[in-house]
Design a protein around this nucleic acid. Structure first.
Lengths: 260, 260
DNA sequence: CTGTCGCATGTAGCATGCTACATGCAGCAT
DNA sequence: ATGCTGCATGTAGCATGCTACATGCGACAG
């Protein structure tokens, strides 16, 4: 090493921490949120590329990632479509979220990192504020952040990433549920006992509360999808499924059995 | 509709059910299994494309999917590397498998589809046969099939796909554990109580057996990765992790708590 | 002998060209 | 009128061209 040289401490620049494909993913997610890309409608990677001012490659890559998450679906030589998850899809996603997020909440309560409870309370407060406006987009944003804090506290990065991916599959549902805005405050309230359980270091309570919250949300969305059928005319991919669709989120029942 | 025409019933050809990218994924997985692509070594999409006789596009796509599963890692402007999972990675994967496969086993036992028990027994027999040879590759193949049968029986397609993806991340470990071939019969034996539990329609027993099996495997691999350090000189990406690495697969302990 | 620099080499990432194919619609036979 | 057929249109998927950059190595200054 050289002798005298001003020691410079610079972040390694992180490189292009955000490749065009990453940006495209974010842009498409945003476009779906605000309705620029409507669910059920057929689009092409061509137009999206032009719309974003980049070539088709990164757009295609972004779409493929989202397709793997179940948010979009490719139709060979036709285009791609924003997927409206059917009741069966919603049930699957929420079954998985139960399996993953409930233990995460327990873990977070058992070994809460410093400052976790404070961060959670802050997010909850933001959710309540957003519910009062009401601003559903903002609400969902803080909801996601709250859940993410818990998942990260569980200390398993893959778990957090997985749940993020699962949320993508049901992302179209949040914005499309008009008239449900009245329930935002209720949804926020469901998070309170989770936070209390974590703050109190009570894994069982935190897990129970999280289980209730997710199961309730899942049941509501499944029922909504089942009842509404296909209101606008979009076709929700409902592969198989059968009549006992969702099986009332068997994981919830499964957890009950395990807790016996 | 026309009047008289022989009604022909042909499968819709499934289209190119196997795109080049899909084939590339399979080929790369196989190459990793049989050592054509060595873990820790640096390769490029260029050479793989030539090796497979296709262009870089589908190869890149395949690599990106595998990267998302954690099997390979891209290094900007350098190439890609078959990831040797560190102890922390292994712990994460097996935590998740516990969270997902244990409930799946319970569900399969609670609602066993027709013929499931028979199929499971057949796979187990194949595993035993492979253990006697011993043929580790064949063994692992039937092991995966057995697990997949259970996951599919749980009736959640995403769950099955997820676990498949998780297996990719630890795929390099199976073939590299020389001298462990003696334990193949033991591993096969661990599956027996799972099958019995499912056949008997006893969810609790099936779940317990599956939990033991996965936790044991995970602990073994974590210990192996921790002890061996880095034998050949390959660098296993061990981001953070700390000393309490793996935390003995907290999910296992978490399940104990839940079963209280 | 040691540390630094410049260059050749090779890659990921992005842009763009090319092909087979799925669909919609007009024209035609019936 | 009605159902089939051929073609124009537009897309996914694959192949290929292009650029910035990360690294290894050898020349060279100190």
């Amino acid at each position: 090493m050289s002798r005298d040289r001003a020691p410079v401490a610079l972040g390694p620049l992180t490189g292009p921490a955000e490749s065009l494909a990453d940006q495209a993913v974010a842009a498409i997610r945003a476009a779906v949120r605000d309705g620029t890309l409507q669910a059920g409608q057929l689009y092409s990677a061509y137009q999206v590329a032009g719309y974003l001012g980049v070539s088709r490659s990164p757009v295609r890559e972004a779409l493929m990632r989202l397709a793997e998450a179940g948010m979009v679906r490719f139709e060979r030589n036709r285009g791609f479509r924003i997927v409206v998850p059917g009741a069966a899809d919603i049930a699957e996603v929420f079954q998985l979220r139960l399996l993953l997020e409930v233990p995460a909440a327990r873990r977070a309560a058992a070994r809460p990192p410093a400052g976790l409870a404070a961060g959670l309370s802050a997010e909850l407060e933001q959710m309540r504020a957003a519910a009062r406006r009401p601003d559903e987009r903002l609400f969902m944003q803080h909801d996601q952040r709250l859940h993410r804090l818990i998942l990260e506290a569980a200390g398993n990065a893959r778990l957090a990433a997985l749940v993020d991916s699962l949320r993508d599959a049901t992302r179209t549902l949040g914005a499309s549920t008009a008239g449900r805005s009245r329930g935002l405050a209720d949804i926020a309230a469901e998070h309170a006992p989770v936070i209390e359980g974590i703050a109190a270091g009570d894994p069982a309570a935190a897990g129970r509360a999280m289980s209730r919250h997710i199961a309730r949300t899942g049941r509501l969305l499944v029922a909504q999808a089942t009842a509404a059928g296909r209101p606008p005319g979009s076709l929700g991919a409902s592969p198989a499924g059968g009549p006992d669709n969702g099986a009332d989120l068997w994981a919830a029942a499964d957890l009950q059995a395990a807790r016996k």
